[in-house]
């Protein structure tokens, strides 16, 4: 069950999608999200789905692993879909069944909302699948560099993020190990009511917290031993540089986003 958590997972590769500058990819994802929220027609959604499909194809990330990323949000998808389907006021009524009423407007909203969330998640995951956490935070730090003038601790935030991302797999592994060890002692996580299930988590959570705190301490000591003192005057091993392909990708991204926004004018 823990294997389903795909956040922060990275599939190494050598495709164009992997080679793009992380800043480019972050910007593209931002454009994509903007475009998704501006999309109003089936045509716009079709274009955006196609764009994603092309990107997936280029990245050589299996569609299967991308769909697997949707698993944790299935509940939200269903919830959003149902809510929109039944509770959209007005519009032309398609089905009336007592108090339950499905309107054309509702159906439209439900389909679009679900599509929007799915594309949003898959698009974001495509970025994390093709970008190592290190270069991702590196890119983010560079992108937000300007905010330093406003005394936003950009470097520290990026460091917090990269440490957090770095430790997700470790903590998952640790949780798996602790779960196995407690299962070996007959712990039962599957049966019982909600309260019993919650109680069954104690043998996992206590050791997990203990080890997370221990890890944090060790990491802090290790960083101080290497004279870490924040971002002031710190240089990079890999200096990010925009290449021709980044320019092309960004231009395409801007054009498509602009196109989607323009499409709004022609649909009601």
């Amino acid at each position: 069950m823990l294997k389903d958590i795909t956040l922060g997972q990275y599939f190494p590769g050598d495709t164009l999608a992997h080679k793009l500058d992380p800043r480019t990819k972050i910007l593209l994802v931002v454009f994509y999200i903007v475009a998704l929220f501006c999309a109003k027609s089936l045509l716009a959604y079709g274009i955006l789905a196609l764009v994603l499909a092309v990107c997936v194809r280029i990245s050589k990330v299996g569609l299967k692993s991308l769909v697997r990323g949707l698993k944790p949000v299935v509940f939200i998808l269903i919830f959003t879909g149902v809510l929109n389907l039944f509770f959209t006021p007005g519009g032309h009524t398609l089905v009336q069944w007592g108090v339950v009423r499905i309107s054309a407007e509702g159906l439209r909203n439900a389909v679009f909302m679900v599509l929007r969330i799915m594309l949003l998640i898959m698009g974001t995951f495509l970025m994390t699948y093709t970008t190592s956490p290190i270069s991702l935070t590196d890119g983010l730090e560079r992108l937000l560099n300007g905010l330093k003038k406003l005394h936003v601790p950009v470097h520290e935030l990026a460091m917090i993020m990269s440490i957090a991302l770095r430790f997700i797999p470790t903590l998952i592994e640790e949780t798996d190990k602790i779960m196995s060890a407690q299962k070996a002692r007959g712990a039962d996580f599957e049966s019982g009511n909600v309260i019993q299930k919650a109680r069954a988590l104690i043998p996992i959570l206590v050791p997990l917290f203990v080890s997370a705190i221990r890890r944090a301490e060790e990491l802090a000591v290790a960083m101080e031993c290497r004279c870490y003192h924040g971002g002031e005057g710190r240089t990079k091993l890999h200096v990010l540089k925009y290449e021709g392909r980044d320019l092309i990708a960004l231009t395409l991204g801007v054009l498509i986003t602009a196109g989607i926004i323009a499409l709004r004018q022609f649909t009601v």
Binding site: I178, A181, Q182, A184, R185, G186, A187, D188, P203, V210
Partner: peptide
């Protein structure tokens, strides 16, 4: 799992109870 008892590597990370007694009793209680 009760018939084949497995002790993992570095098993000390699995301890969680308030007392040593209760921790040892976790398996048999289950």
């Amino acid at each position: 799992r009760f018939q084949v008892g497995l002790v993992f590597q570095y098993p000390e990370y699995q301890l969680f109870e308030e007392t040593v007694y209760k921790d040892i009793a976790f398996g048999p209680t289950n």
